[in-house]
Design a binder for these strands. Sequence first.
DNA 1: TGCGTAAGTATGAAAATTCATATAAATTCC
DNA 2: GGAATTTATATGAATTTTCATACTTACGCA
Lengths: 164, 164
Amino acid sequence: MDAQNIRSMDDSDQNPEQGFTSDYLLYLLAAASDAASAQFHAQVRDRGLKVPEWRVMACLAEQDGQMITRLAKIALYEQSRLTRIIEKMEEKGLVRRSPDSQDGRRVRVFLNAPAREMALDLIRQARAHEQELLDVIRNTGADRIKPTLKTLIRHLDPDTPLDS
Amino acid sequence: MDAQNIRSMDDSDQNPEQGFTSDYLLYLLAAASDAASAQFHAQVRDRGLKVPEWRVMACLAEQDGQMITRLAKIALYEQSRLTRIIEKMEEKGLVRRSPDSQDGRRVRVFLNAPAREMALDLIRQARAHEQELLDVIRNTGADRIKPTLKTLIRHLDPDTPLDS
DNA sequence: TGCGTAAGTATGAAAATTCATATAAATTCC
DNA sequence: GGAATTTATATGAATTTTCATACTTACGCA
Protein backbone atom coordinates (compact mmCIF):
# COMPACT_ATOMS: atom_id res chain seq x y z
CA MET A 1 0.00 0.00 0.00
CA ASP A 2 0.97 3.61 -0.39
CA ALA A 3 1.63 5.91 2.46
CA GLN A 4 -1.17 5.90 4.96
CA ASN A 5 -3.67 8.59 4.43
CA ILE A 6 -3.61 9.79 7.94
CA ARG A 7 -6.27 12.35 8.55
CA SER A 8 -5.63 15.41 10.58
CA MET A 9 -7.87 16.24 13.47
CA ASP A 10 -9.73 18.80 11.51
CA ASP A 11 -11.23 16.27 9.12
CA SER A 12 -10.99 18.71 6.26
CA ASP A 13 -11.36 16.57 3.22
CA GLN A 14 -12.85 16.89 -0.18
CA ASN A 15 -15.94 14.73 -0.06
CA PRO A 16 -17.66 14.32 -3.38
CA GLU A 17 -20.87 13.41 -1.60
CA GLN A 18 -20.93 16.29 0.78
CA GLY A 19 -24.18 16.42 2.64
CA PHE A 20 -25.89 13.47 1.09
CA THR A 21 -26.93 11.61 4.18
CA SER A 22 -28.03 14.54 6.24
CA ASP A 23 -30.37 15.73 3.54
CA TYR A 24 -31.62 12.36 2.37
CA LEU A 25 -35.30 11.79 2.95
CA LEU A 26 -35.01 8.15 3.98
CA TYR A 27 -32.32 9.04 6.45
CA LEU A 28 -34.30 11.89 7.93
CA LEU A 29 -37.33 9.67 8.29
CA ALA A 30 -35.34 6.96 10.03
CA ALA A 31 -33.51 9.39 12.28
CA ALA A 32 -36.66 11.25 13.25
CA SER A 33 -38.53 8.04 13.90
CA ASP A 34 -35.70 6.68 15.99
CA ALA A 35 -35.17 9.77 18.05
CA ALA A 36 -38.82 10.45 18.66
CA SER A 37 -39.60 6.88 19.53
CA ALA A 38 -36.65 6.52 21.85
CA GLN A 39 -38.03 9.32 23.92
CA PHE A 40 -41.43 7.78 24.34
CA HIS A 41 -40.18 4.25 24.70
CA ALA A 42 -38.59 5.21 27.97
CA GLN A 43 -42.08 5.68 29.35
CA VAL A 44 -43.10 2.33 27.98
CA ARG A 45 -40.26 0.55 29.71
CA ASP A 46 -41.06 2.31 32.95
CA ARG A 47 -44.23 0.27 32.97
CA GLY A 48 -42.37 -2.97 32.55
CA LEU A 49 -43.40 -3.30 28.93
CA LYS A 50 -41.26 -3.91 25.91
CA VAL A 51 -41.71 -1.77 22.87
CA PRO A 52 -43.33 -4.50 20.76
CA GLU A 53 -45.76 -5.16 23.57
CA TRP A 54 -46.78 -1.54 23.65
CA ARG A 55 -47.32 -1.50 19.92
CA VAL A 56 -49.50 -4.53 20.04
CA MET A 57 -51.46 -3.19 22.96
CA ALA A 58 -52.07 0.09 21.20
CA CYS A 59 -53.41 -1.78 18.19
CA LEU A 60 -55.65 -3.96 20.29
CA ALA A 61 -56.96 -1.05 22.34
CA GLU A 62 -58.26 0.25 19.08
CA GLN A 63 -59.48 -2.99 17.62
CA ASP A 64 -59.58 -5.90 19.97
CA GLY A 65 -59.59 -9.41 18.63
CA GLN A 66 -57.37 -8.86 15.66
CA MET A 67 -55.84 -11.82 13.94
CA ILE A 68 -52.11 -12.39 14.04
CA THR A 69 -51.33 -11.54 10.45
CA ARG A 70 -53.19 -8.28 10.50
CA LEU A 71 -51.74 -7.32 13.83
CA ALA A 72 -48.32 -7.98 12.42
CA LYS A 73 -48.97 -5.74 9.47
CA ILE A 74 -50.28 -2.89 11.55
CA ALA A 75 -47.59 -3.16 14.18
CA LEU A 76 -44.92 -3.31 11.49
CA TYR A 77 -43.58 -6.69 12.54
CA GLU A 78 -43.04 -9.85 10.65
CA GLN A 79 -45.66 -12.49 11.18
CA SER A 80 -43.40 -15.08 12.75
CA ARG A 81 -42.01 -12.48 15.04
CA LEU A 82 -45.42 -11.32 16.10
CA THR A 83 -46.44 -14.87 16.88
CA ARG A 84 -43.62 -15.06 19.38
CA ILE A 85 -44.34 -11.63 20.80
CA ILE A 86 -47.93 -12.69 21.40
CA GLU A 87 -46.76 -15.91 23.03
CA LYS A 88 -44.76 -13.97 25.57
CA MET A 89 -47.57 -11.51 26.12
CA GLU A 90 -49.89 -14.38 26.80
CA GLU A 91 -47.50 -15.78 29.37
CA LYS A 92 -47.33 -12.37 30.98
CA GLY A 93 -51.09 -12.29 31.09
CA LEU A 94 -51.43 -9.26 28.85
CA VAL A 95 -53.46 -10.95 26.15
CA ARG A 96 -55.31 -14.15 25.40
CA ARG A 97 -55.67 -16.01 22.15
CA SER A 98 -58.55 -17.87 20.69
CA PRO A 99 -59.13 -19.39 17.30
CA ASP A 100 -61.64 -17.70 15.11
CA SER A 101 -64.95 -19.51 15.17
CA GLN A 102 -65.53 -18.93 11.49
CA ASP A 103 -62.08 -19.68 10.19
CA GLY A 104 -60.05 -22.22 12.06
CA ARG A 105 -56.79 -20.99 10.63
CA ARG A 106 -57.07 -17.62 12.25
CA VAL A 107 -56.04 -16.82 15.77
CA ARG A 108 -57.59 -13.79 17.35
CA VAL A 109 -55.87 -11.87 20.08
CA PHE A 110 -57.67 -10.13 22.91
CA LEU A 111 -56.44 -7.69 25.50
CA ASN A 112 -56.99 -8.67 29.10
CA ALA A 113 -58.64 -6.05 31.25
CA PRO A 114 -55.60 -4.88 33.22
CA ALA A 115 -53.60 -4.63 30.03
CA ARG A 116 -56.36 -2.60 28.46
CA GLU A 117 -56.19 -0.16 31.34
CA MET A 118 -52.52 0.20 30.88
CA ALA A 119 -52.89 0.59 27.14
CA LEU A 120 -55.44 3.36 27.46
CA ASP A 121 -53.21 5.10 29.92
CA LEU A 122 -50.22 4.84 27.67
CA ILE A 123 -52.22 6.13 24.76
CA ARG A 124 -52.97 9.21 26.81
CA GLN A 125 -49.29 9.64 27.50
CA ALA A 126 -48.53 9.09 23.85
CA ARG A 127 -50.94 11.81 22.84
CA ALA A 128 -49.35 14.21 25.27
CA HIS A 129 -45.93 13.38 24.00
CA GLU A 130 -47.07 13.77 20.44
CA GLN A 131 -48.38 17.20 21.23
CA GLU A 132 -45.00 18.20 22.59
CA LEU A 133 -43.40 17.16 19.36
CA LEU A 134 -45.97 18.99 17.30
CA ASP A 135 -45.23 22.07 19.34
CA VAL A 136 -41.58 21.74 18.50
CA ILE A 137 -42.33 21.86 14.79
CA ARG A 138 -45.13 24.37 15.16
CA ASN A 139 -43.47 26.84 12.86
CA THR A 140 -41.83 24.40 10.52
CA GLY A 141 -44.75 22.48 9.16
CA ALA A 142 -46.60 20.82 12.01
CA ASP A 143 -49.82 21.02 10.05
CA ARG A 144 -48.47 19.31 6.96
CA ILE A 145 -46.41 16.48 8.32
CA LYS A 146 -49.10 13.94 9.06
CA PRO A 147 -50.92 14.31 5.75
CA THR A 148 -47.60 14.13 3.95
CA LEU A 149 -46.57 10.96 5.73
CA LYS A 150 -49.95 9.42 5.09
CA THR A 151 -49.71 10.16 1.40
CA LEU A 152 -46.34 8.50 1.34
CA ILE A 153 -47.52 5.46 3.22
CA ARG A 154 -50.60 5.03 1.12
CA HIS A 155 -48.53 5.19 -2.00
CA LEU A 156 -45.88 2.78 -0.78
CA ASP A 157 -48.20 0.33 0.86
CA PRO A 158 -51.87 0.70 0.01
CA ASP A 159 -52.74 -2.06 2.45
CA THR A 160 -51.70 -0.13 5.50
CA PRO A 161 -54.89 0.98 7.17
CA LEU A 162 -55.05 4.74 7.60
CA ASP A 163 -58.43 6.17 8.38
CA SER A 164 -58.32 9.91 7.96
CA MET B 1 -47.17 -9.65 -1.51
CA ASP B 2 -50.87 -9.33 -1.90
CA ALA B 3 -51.87 -9.14 1.72
CA GLN B 4 -55.56 -9.55 2.13
CA ASN B 5 -57.33 -6.74 3.72
CA ILE B 6 -60.46 -8.57 4.54
CA ARG B 7 -62.02 -7.74 7.84
CA SER B 8 -64.87 -9.99 8.68
CA MET B 9 -68.18 -8.26 8.66
CA ASP B 10 -68.66 -9.10 12.30
CA ASP B 11 -65.80 -6.95 13.47
CA SER B 12 -68.21 -4.65 15.16
CA ASP B 13 -66.37 -3.79 18.31
CA GLN B 14 -66.59 -0.68 20.35
CA ASN B 15 -63.21 0.92 20.13
CA PRO B 16 -62.78 3.79 22.52
CA GLU B 17 -59.51 4.61 20.85
CA GLN B 18 -60.78 4.72 17.33
CA GLY B 19 -58.14 5.97 15.03
CA PHE B 20 -55.34 6.49 17.47
CA THR B 21 -52.61 4.55 15.79
CA SER B 22 -53.29 5.61 12.25
CA ASP B 23 -53.08 9.26 13.17
CA TYR B 24 -50.24 9.04 15.66
CA LEU B 25 -47.13 10.87 14.61
CA LEU B 26 -44.66 8.29 15.87
CA TYR B 27 -46.55 5.57 14.09
CA LEU B 28 -46.67 7.48 10.84
CA LEU B 29 -42.97 8.19 11.05
CA ALA B 30 -42.15 4.55 11.66
CA ALA B 31 -44.50 3.30 8.97
CA ALA B 32 -43.29 5.78 6.40
CA SER B 33 -39.67 5.06 7.21
CA ASP B 34 -40.25 1.33 7.00
CA ALA B 35 -42.16 1.37 3.76
CA ALA B 36 -39.89 3.81 2.01
CA SER B 37 -36.74 2.06 3.12
CA ALA B 38 -38.02 -1.37 2.20
CA GLN B 39 -38.41 -0.20 -1.34
CA PHE B 40 -34.86 1.07 -1.67
CA HIS B 41 -33.32 -1.73 0.32
CA ALA B 42 -34.27 -4.14 -2.42
CA GLN B 43 -31.79 -2.35 -4.64
CA VAL B 44 -29.17 -2.58 -1.94
CA ARG B 45 -29.57 -6.32 -1.61
CA ASP B 46 -29.37 -6.70 -5.35
CA ARG B 47 -25.77 -5.64 -5.04
CA GLY B 48 -25.05 -8.24 -2.42
CA LEU B 49 -24.98 -5.72 0.37
CA LYS B 50 -26.83 -5.78 3.64
CA VAL B 51 -28.69 -2.71 4.75
CA PRO B 52 -26.27 -1.84 7.54
CA GLU B 53 -23.42 -2.10 5.09
CA TRP B 54 -25.07 0.34 2.75
CA ARG B 55 -25.66 2.79 5.54
CA VAL B 56 -22.06 2.65 6.62
CA MET B 57 -20.84 3.00 3.07
CA ALA B 58 -23.03 6.02 2.49
CA CYS B 59 -21.57 7.66 5.59
CA LEU B 60 -18.03 6.87 4.57
CA ALA B 61 -18.53 8.05 1.02
CA GLU B 62 -19.28 11.38 2.56
CA GLN B 63 -16.63 11.36 5.22
CA ASP B 64 -14.04 8.69 4.95
CA GLY B 65 -12.04 7.70 7.97
CA GLN B 66 -14.73 8.16 10.57
CA MET B 67 -14.26 6.62 13.95
CA ILE B 68 -16.49 3.77 15.09
CA THR B 69 -18.48 5.70 17.66
CA ARG B 70 -19.33 8.52 15.33
CA LEU B 71 -20.16 6.17 12.52
CA ALA B 72 -22.50 4.36 14.86
CA LYS B 73 -24.24 7.55 15.80
CA ILE B 74 -24.69 8.70 12.23
CA ALA B 75 -25.77 5.31 10.96
CA LEU B 76 -28.22 4.97 13.84
CA TYR B 77 -26.66 1.81 15.22
CA GLU B 78 -25.43 0.91 18.62
CA GLN B 79 -21.70 1.02 19.03
CA SER B 80 -21.18 -2.64 19.77
CA ARG B 81 -23.33 -3.52 16.84
CA LEU B 82 -21.41 -1.27 14.53
CA THR B 83 -18.15 -2.80 15.64
CA ARG B 84 -19.41 -6.14 14.43
CA ILE B 85 -20.80 -4.74 11.22
CA ILE B 86 -17.41 -3.24 10.45
CA GLU B 87 -15.69 -6.52 11.25
CA LYS B 88 -17.75 -8.29 8.63
CA MET B 89 -17.28 -5.49 6.14
CA GLU B 90 -13.57 -5.76 6.64
CA GLU B 91 -13.69 -9.48 5.97
CA LYS B 92 -15.67 -8.78 2.83
CA GLY B 93 -13.03 -6.31 1.77
CA LEU B 94 -15.37 -3.33 1.80
CA VAL B 95 -13.47 -1.32 4.38
CA ARG B 96 -10.24 -1.30 6.30
CA ARG B 97 -9.57 -0.17 9.83
CA SER B 98 -6.65 1.61 11.32
CA PRO B 99 -6.07 3.08 14.71
CA ASP B 100 -5.96 6.85 14.89
CA SER B 101 -2.39 8.07 15.05
CA GLN B 102 -3.27 10.84 17.46
CA ASP B 103 -5.56 8.93 19.76
CA GLY B 104 -4.85 5.26 20.21
CA ARG B 105 -8.33 4.52 21.45
CA ARG B 106 -9.95 5.46 18.21
CA VAL B 107 -10.33 3.21 15.23
CA ARG B 108 -10.85 4.88 11.92
CA VAL B 109 -12.69 3.18 9.10
CA PHE B 110 -11.85 3.69 5.44
CA LEU B 111 -13.71 2.63 2.34
CA ASN B 112 -11.77 0.51 -0.10
CA ALA B 113 -11.81 1.72 -3.68
CA PRO B 114 -14.25 -0.80 -5.14
CA ALA B 115 -16.63 -0.23 -2.26
CA ARG B 116 -16.43 3.49 -2.82
CA GLU B 117 -17.43 3.01 -6.42
CA MET B 118 -20.39 1.00 -5.36
CA ALA B 119 -21.32 3.52 -2.70
CA LEU B 120 -21.27 6.42 -5.12
CA ASP B 121 -23.38 4.44 -7.48
CA LEU B 122 -25.90 3.57 -4.84
CA ILE B 123 -26.04 7.16 -3.73
CA ARG B 124 -27.06 8.05 -7.24
CA GLN B 125 -29.78 5.45 -7.12
CA ALA B 126 -30.86 6.69 -3.73
CA ARG B 127 -31.21 10.21 -5.04
CA ALA B 128 -33.31 9.02 -7.92
CA HIS B 129 -35.50 7.02 -5.60
CA GLU B 130 -35.83 9.96 -3.26
CA GLN B 131 -36.98 12.10 -6.13
CA GLU B 132 -39.69 9.61 -6.94
CA LEU B 133 -40.94 9.82 -3.40
CA LEU B 134 -40.84 13.59 -3.41
CA ASP B 135 -42.91 13.51 -6.57
CA VAL B 136 -45.47 11.38 -4.81
CA ILE B 137 -45.94 13.99 -2.11
CA ARG B 138 -45.55 16.91 -4.47
CA ASN B 139 -48.93 18.31 -3.62
CA THR B 140 -49.02 17.30 0.00
CA GLY B 141 -46.03 19.07 1.43
CA ALA B 142 -42.93 17.88 -0.37
CA ASP B 143 -41.27 21.20 0.26
CA ARG B 144 -41.83 21.15 4.01
CA ILE B 145 -41.08 17.61 5.01
CA LYS B 146 -37.31 17.71 5.18
CA PRO B 147 -37.08 20.94 7.14
CA THR B 148 -39.74 19.66 9.48
CA LEU B 149 -37.93 16.38 10.09
CA LYS B 150 -34.68 18.22 10.62
CA THR B 151 -36.24 20.48 13.20
CA LEU B 152 -37.55 17.46 15.00
CA ILE B 153 -34.23 15.65 14.90
CA ARG B 154 -32.28 18.68 16.06
CA HIS B 155 -34.62 19.11 18.95
CA LEU B 156 -34.60 15.47 19.98
CA ASP B 157 -30.92 14.87 19.48
CA PRO B 158 -28.81 18.00 19.06
CA ASP B 159 -25.75 15.82 18.45
CA THR B 160 -27.01 14.39 15.21
CA PRO B 161 -25.07 16.12 12.46
CA LEU B 162 -27.33 17.87 9.96
CA ASP B 163 -25.71 20.39 7.73
CA SER B 164 -28.39 22.41 6.04
C1' DT C 1 -67.02 -34.96 -3.38
C1' DG C 2 -62.29 -34.78 -3.89
C1' DC C 3 -58.09 -32.44 -5.38
C1' DG C 4 -55.07 -28.67 -6.00
C1' DT C 5 -54.05 -24.23 -4.22
C1' DA C 6 -54.04 -20.49 -1.02
C1' DA C 7 -54.23 -18.46 3.66
C1' DG C 8 -52.99 -18.25 8.56
C1' DT C 9 -49.99 -19.62 12.10
C1' DA C 10 -46.13 -21.86 14.18
C1' DT C 11 -41.39 -23.40 14.59
C1' DG C 12 -36.27 -24.86 14.03
C1' DA C 13 -32.04 -23.08 13.18
C1' DA C 14 -29.13 -19.44 11.89
C1' DA C 15 -28.10 -14.70 12.16
C1' DA C 16 -28.60 -10.34 14.29
C1' DT C 17 -28.91 -7.37 18.15
C1' DT C 18 -28.69 -5.95 22.87
C1' DC C 19 -26.76 -5.39 27.45
C1' DA C 20 -23.38 -5.36 30.58
C1' DT C 21 -18.85 -5.24 31.07
C1' DA C 22 -13.84 -5.87 29.94
C1' DT C 23 -9.87 -3.63 28.11
C1' DA C 24 -7.05 0.00 26.94
C1' DA C 25 -5.72 4.66 25.88
C1' DA C 26 -6.28 9.53 26.94
C1' DT C 27 -7.46 13.29 30.27
C1' DT C 28 -8.13 15.51 34.56
C1' DC C 29 -6.53 17.28 38.51
C1' DC C 30 -3.97 17.19 42.73
C1' DG D 1 4.02 12.14 38.08
C1' DG D 2 0.36 9.30 38.92
C1' DA D 3 -4.30 7.94 40.71
C1' DA D 4 -8.92 8.60 39.39
C1' DT D 5 -11.94 9.41 35.68
C1' DT D 6 -13.52 9.53 31.10
C1' DT D 7 -13.59 8.02 26.33
C1' DA D 8 -13.27 4.46 22.55
C1' DT D 9 -13.71 -0.16 21.19
C1' DA D 10 -14.40 -4.94 21.75
C1' DT D 11 -16.57 -9.11 23.47
C1' DG D 12 -19.41 -12.87 26.02
C1' DA D 13 -23.83 -14.31 26.67
C1' DA D 14 -28.60 -13.82 26.43
C1' DT D 15 -32.28 -12.38 23.69
C1' DT D 16 -34.42 -11.14 19.58
C1' DT D 17 -35.21 -11.43 14.74
C1' DT D 18 -35.12 -13.51 10.33
C1' DC D 19 -35.77 -17.09 6.86
C1' DA D 20 -37.46 -21.00 5.15
C1' DT D 21 -40.67 -24.18 5.72
C1' DA D 22 -44.02 -27.30 8.10
C1' DC D 23 -48.63 -27.72 9.29
C1' DT D 24 -53.47 -27.01 9.40
C1' DT D 25 -57.70 -25.22 7.77
C1' DA D 26 -60.32 -23.09 4.10
C1' DC D 27 -61.48 -22.29 -0.63
C1' DG D 28 -62.08 -22.90 -5.81
C1' DC D 29 -63.85 -25.78 -8.88
C1' DA D 30 -63.96 -29.93 -12.11
